[in-house]
C-alpha cells in the first residue's frame, strides 16, 4: 500500500469511533488500533517498512506511529528520530554552518537535530525527549521518506 493511501486510511479511521481495524491481502497486512494507551499502526509489507520510536500517546488527538511487524532493530535499547515528511535531509542549517548534532551529542527536548526540506518548506526536526545521538542514519542532503529513521538515539 502506498504511504498516501495508508495516510488516507488512517485519517478515515481516526475520523470515526473505530478502535481496531485489520486488513490483509497477498502482499501485506495492516493493523490499526486506537485507544488511550496504545495508538499505533502495524504495517507489514515486502518492502522495508518505516520504523518509529513510540511517542507519548495523547488521549485527545489521534496519534499515529508506524511500527514494523518484525522489528528491524533488534536492540530496543535505542529509539529513532524519524522524518515527519518526505524530503531532503540536511545535517546543517546552511552549507557553511556546523552540523546541528554529531555522534555522541546530548540533545535536550525541543533542540533541533536536523532540517528536512520538501518543496521549500523547511522543517527543523526537534528532539521530543532528551537523548544521546548514537548513529546518524542518513547522509547530508540525502532524500528521506515519510517516517524514515534519521537518527538512532538513546533516551536519557
Amino acid at each position: 500500500m502506498e504511504i498516501k493511501d495508508l495516510r488516507t486510511l488512517v485519517k478515515m479511521i481516526t475520523d470515526t469511533d473505530i478502535t481496531e481495524f485489520e486488513m490483509e491481502n497477498a502482499e501485506e497486512k495492516i493493523v490499526i488500533k486506537r485507544g488511550p494507551e496504545k495508538e499505533y499502526v502495524q504495517f507489514a509489507a515486502a518492502a522495508p517498512a518505516a520504523i518509529a520510536a513510540p511517542t507519548a500517546a495523547s488521549s485527545a488527538a489521534p496519534s499515529v506511529t508506524v511500527t514494523p511487524a518484525e522489528p528491524a532493530v533488534a536492540d530496543d535499547k535505542y529509539e529513532t528520530i524519524n522524518s515527519p515528511i518526505v524530503g531532503s535531509f540536511y545535517r546543517k542549517p546552511s552549507p557553511e554552518a556546523d552540523p546541528f548534532v554529531d555522534i555522541g551529542s546530548v540533545v535536550e527536548v525541543g533542540q533541533a537535530v536536523c532540517l528536512v526540506e520538501a518543496m521549500k518548506m523547511f522543517n527543523e526536526i526537534e528532539a521530543e525527549f532528551k537523548c544521546k545521538i548514537i548513529e546518524i542514519l542518513k547522509e547530508d542532503a540525502a532524500p528521506v521518506e515519510f517516517g524514515e529513521p534519521l537518527f538512532k538515539v538513546e533516551r536519557l
Binding site: 511517542t55 496519534s63 499515529v64 524519524n82 515527519p84 521549500k120 523547511f122 526537534e126 521530543e128
Partner: peptide
C-alpha cells in the same frame, strides 16, 4: 514556488514549519 515575470524571478518564497510527529 518561484514567481517569474518574463522569465525573471520577481518573488522568492520560503516556508518554515514547526511540527511534532503527528
Amino acid at each position: 514556488n518561484d514567481v517569474l515575470l518574463n522569465g525573471r524571478k520577481v518573488a522568492g518564497l520560503l516556508n518554515e514549519m514547526s511540527a511534532e510527529t503527528d
